[in-house]
Design a protein around this nucleic acid. Structure first.
Lengths: 225, 225
DNA sequence: TCCTCAATGAGCAAAACCTTCATGGTATGT
DNA sequence: ACATACCATGAAGGTTTTGCTCATTGAGGA
């Protein structure tokens, strides 16, 4: 079990780290929100524990940001506040639990364990892929860009899914032909080009930013630039 | 076992309380909806029994309010009304059962026990499925849309049930054939299409909003749009 | 500039879908 | 037991949508 602790009071960090390690819990920590999110994006944690008020970014924004990046690690917020309004705000932002200072260490421990259990339960394969302002719902077979629904045919959808799953990575036409069409790319066909064109018409043309880029002689890449 | 009784007729309260206590059931009571909800929020009951018409708040609103507050205690509504519309409304608001006055005390007792049993088993299979303005009662094999009863044949009912259970999710014809017909989808048959057509005629055609959508090449989806 | 690779538009065949109809089976009521 | 109504299902015809090819135009790199 591994947790990320985001907290600016060094004393609290120290005592918590010590306490958690005694219970076989690995702890990474960050003293401000910015490095906290960086760590959260880079590594995989079972639970993220964050003070509501930390330099650089508060716990609410942090949670919201992580969720938007597809990080669904359970978040436990720590705070001195205890008004109902704040609880609502925190939970709404996607936090999973909430603990008011001063708190009992055992309670904290219990909640961490509960959250990590829940997190693993949610090992359902992701059903929504995200890239830039695109959301692709694999269950409903829907795709939205900037909140606008885009109608794709099954093949177009499959190709787009392949692009999103390989976002930021160059993919050759042979690769695409193999994975999406399941054919040993015969140079005689230009299906891939045709379908990339279809996708561009629907996914890129109506918008400002182009996301599907051609790498001359190498294939294509989905990139936000 | 402990129940909450919300009823403004003191006589009814008295006789019910007496009857229930004789069967080892503890009873709290409220003479109006407002104190009723307060009690419901403060204490834990096995079942809540409420008249539909009580001062301050009616049984429908009460049920809805409690659900919105995360109280999932089973609610049994008592009423002098017996029109279909009211039944539909009550169930929609999340009530779990319904009894029309004058009722047999033994029947009331039986239902209380049934509800309390169900309340404890959190993953008890639901007997009423809801989607958009559709309610499907699996026990009564009845289905209503917007308060209007729809007559379905057994196969149509089974198909509709499958759709509702997978609402918002694309389901392929092969999937449907397997789950609803229990056949290894032979392309030679078009039963699924035929039955989707039947369903549309009864469930969608007479109404404004279409709920059963075709995803070309991917199957069907039940969606509110 | 020239050659190669990529983008685009038109067109067509196949696949998927909707709808209606006929048939046989099952349940219901007399 | 019989007649009747209802239900489940495959078949056929027509319509819509998709997948793909081909030919042509446009762009990139040496």
């Amino acid at each position: 079990m591994k947790v990320l602790l985001i907290e600016d009071e060094k004393k609290a960090v120290q005592s918590l780290t010590k306490g958690l390690k005694e219970h076989q819990i690995e702890v990474d920590f960050a003293l401000d929100g910015t490095t906290g999110t960086e760590l959260a994006l880079k590594n995989e944690y079972d639970v993220i524990i964050s003070d509501i008020i930390v330099p650089g970014m508060n716990g609410f924004d942090l949670t919201q940001y992580l969720r938007s990046q597809g990080i669904n690690t359970p978040v436990l917020l720590l705070t001195a506040l205890s008004s109902t309004d704040d609880k609502v705000l925190g939970l709404e932002a996607g936090a999973d639990d909430y603990l008011t200072k001063p708190y009992d260490f055992k309670e904290l421990l219990a909640r961490i364990k509960a959250l990590s259990r829940r997190g693993k339960d949610t090992n359902a394969p992701k059903s929504v892929l995200v890239f830039a302002d695109i959301e692709m719902n694999l269950l409903a077979k829907e795709i939205y860009r900037g909140g606008v629904k885009i109608e794709l045919t099954p093949k177009e959808f499959a190709l787009m899914e392949y692009f999103i799953r390989n976002q930021g990575k160059a993919v050759s036409k042979a690769e695409i032909a193999e994975k999406v069409w399941d054919i040993n790319f015969e140079t005689s066909s230009n299906v891939v080009e045709v379908y990339v064109n279809y996708l561009r018409n629907k996914v890129d043309k109506p918008f400002q930013k182009k996301l599907i880029h051609t790498l001359f002689g190498q294939g294509y890449i989905l990139k936000d630039e």
